[in-house]
Design a binder for these strands. Structure first.
Length: 325
DNA sequence: AAGACGAAAGTGGTTGA
DNA sequence: TCAACAACTTTCGTCTT
């Protein structure tokens, strides 16, 4: 049994600890009994590194997936075959029609021809208008890809961001605003929609736009495009922190378990998901002996050390930990 | 010397009259 | 619309390893 506090709780205190014990057992290979098991998230398997035996093939894919957030998309994405892509703009070639009423030899056109050219010019003007918005779209979509890559976002988030941007264009929300500012907000909304934990600050920084501006555009989106934005799940933050700090799968697993128990005991309500994730990750790192400093975790989770301390104190007061390795 | 701790004051967002 | 409020941050001095 491992207690987090350096001072062991007294008998009297132990009686008051009404938290449930957490038991974490590391799986061992059913073939060779080796404990050297790795998760292969791409194939959704747990594989024994010793003998190659597939221990379990029911590993949940925590990665992002296709998502539809309005009816139109639901219909569009109910499909067979390769996915549609919204990130690539249709590169149109444009043509100009001369304004002089003369042909290539400089001869005057007949009145009938004049009328024909008039009609052609009229339509050309109309096409050009849509060309301009298409051009805007092309620039914006390229921008989305660029900042998306900076933030190492999965492709589906970029797709979502592109859809959101197109929608914003349709609703005339971009007039008078910086394209980069709007794309940044679109990316942020897409992250939220897809449950990818990225802070407003990270997105703002990657796109070289002030946090204030991105926030403003973000709120504009919420108001005018009526998206319901779900709060990011704590478990997503746990995954993020773990991968950012190169923690072993075991640490992340324990972190998830601690969170699960804490949730049952209602220790997490009203608390920011990022701070809870940071605290559970901190505890898990200590329990497994792969200790990370509060500062490291604070940085990865984008919360302060003080907040981690506050959260983890609350957790430690109510939980005690049993680790079987 | 680095990490952890915690008090106190400040900040931005939500809620409810 | 404004004030109250909780969560969180910033800052900083102190203790611990």
């Amino acid at each position: 049994m491992i207690f987090l506090s350096s001072k062991k709780p007294s008998e009297g205190l132990l009686k008051h600890l009404n938290g449930k014990p957490i038991t974490v057992e590391t799986q061992s290979c059913t073939e060779c009994q080796s404990k050297n098991i790795m998760e292969d998230k791409e194939r959704g398997e747990k594989v024994c590194l010793n003998c190659g035996f597939v221990v379990s093939d029911k590993l949940a894919d925590r990665g992002p997936e296709w998502r539809a957030f309005d009816h139109e998309q639901k219909e569009k994405r109910k499909r067979v075959g390769s996915p549609l892509t919204y990130t690539v703009h249709d590169k149109g070639l444009s043509t100009n029609i001369g304004w002089r009423d003369k042909d290539i030899y400089g001869k005057k056109l007949s009145s009938e021809q004049k009328a024909q050219f008039y009609r052609m010019r009229k339509w050309q003007r109309r096409i050009r208008v849509s060309d301009a918005t298409e051009r805007n779209l092309a620039v914006a979509l390229a921008g989305i890809s660029k900042t998306g890559n900076k933030l190492t976002l999965p492709k589906n988030v970029l797709e979502t961001a592109s859809v959101i941007y197109r929608k914003a264009v349709k609703e005339r929300l971009i007039r008078g605003r910086l394209i980069e500012g709007v794309t940044a907000a679109a990316i942020y909304v897409a992250c939220r929609q897809c449950g990818i934990p990225r802070t407003l600050e990270e997105v703002a920084e990657a796109s070289n736009i002030s946090k204030k501006e991105v926030g403003r555009n973000y709120r504009l989106f919420l108001k005018n495009l009526d998206y319901s934005i779900p709060p990011i799940k704590t478990s997503k933050y746990i995954t993020k922190i773990s991968s950012q700090l190169d923690m072993q799968g075991k640490v992340e697993e324990i972190s998830h378990k601690i969170f699960g128990t804490a949730k049952e005991l209602k220790l997490t309500s009203g608390r920011g998901p990022a701070s809870v994730a940071a605290a559970t990750s901190y505890i898990a790192s200590i329990l497994t002996g792969e200790k990370k400093t509060q500062r490291e975790i604070a940085e990865a989770a984008d919360v302060t050390e003080v907040t981690i301390r506050n959260r983890y104190k609350e957790l430690v007061e109510r939980l005690y930990f049993v680790v079987k390795i």
